[in-house]
Amino acid sequence: MSSADSLATPTWRGDLDDRVSKYLGRSQRSLKLVRGRETVIYVILIASGLFSLLITGAIIYVLAIETVSFFKSDEVTFANFFGSTTWNPLLGGTKSFGIWALICGTMLVTAIAMSIALPLGLITAIYLSEYAPRRVRNVLKPVLEVLAGVPTVVYGFFALMTITPILQWLHGGFSVYNAASAGIAVGILCLPTVCSLAEDALQAVPRGLREGAYGLGATRFDVSVKVVVPAALSGIISAFLLAIARAVGETMIVALAAGSLAQATFDPRQQVQTMTGFMVQMASGDVSNYGTEYYSMYAVAFTLFIMTLALTMVGNIVRRRFREAYE
């Protein structure tokens, strides 16, 4: 500020005062222009905000019209779609579109995944939130972040190349593609999700509740399990729901490790096909763009979308309620 230095004398006042009052008295920037720009920007922002609604609308519209084309086909009936457990869309003579076969496969994989991710994720969350010393947190948090950041195709590889051989070594009955291996990998994938959402919920419980319990002589276990977890229960449930939705929609792992034979079975050693797995099979094969089997992809996607939407919607609403309760 060279000009400023020269003015740093006792006589600065009159000089500077006059000049500045002249500047301040000068015409201001046009408010009309500013306001015009403001309106344009506001409209742009609102347009981007509405864009996300448009995406949802587009998903529903696209899935709905293509699903309608699917059901218009002579080869498909509602009774077959919702009532049959045989999914056989590709083979010529005996086509059958029983969605239950795919839902069953999805459920089996999800159940296996959740039996791993939910308990382990919750306990890890409790440990991180209530027990873990700083040093352990500093190791465990990045490990979970890395696990969460690994692409699903890598988990698929891990399931096929590592988990499946181990399972086969433990028990001879596992086939090369099996539900258990895919389920375990999906479980590992969902573990960080469960853990971080559940930890958020536990952290949201006010300190006062914990201090009150400690003040009554409770052990850490008592505080965590009897006070904090019940207080955070709805938050934890929402974490579970969001994780289940994630598992239901998981694609690459099941495409690689679960197999491509749609069958209604509850035997984790067997190969199964999930809804997502079927879509991948369709996309990676040479299927014409117009046949019933092509449209069946959309019908399956619609079913999948409704299932995951219901889960995330309930999960998010529960989460929001829970947060409001403690704010």
């Binding site: 905000g49 996300s52 995406i55 879509m279």
Partner: peptide, 19 residues
């Protein structure tokens, strides 16, 4: 919009592929 965004985050990516 807010709820919609949280829900979109939960839509399986394969569905976006079909869209």
């Amino acid at each position: 919009i807010q709820l919609n965004i949280s829900n979109l985050a939960g839509v399986p990516s394969v569905v976006y592929g079909l869209l």
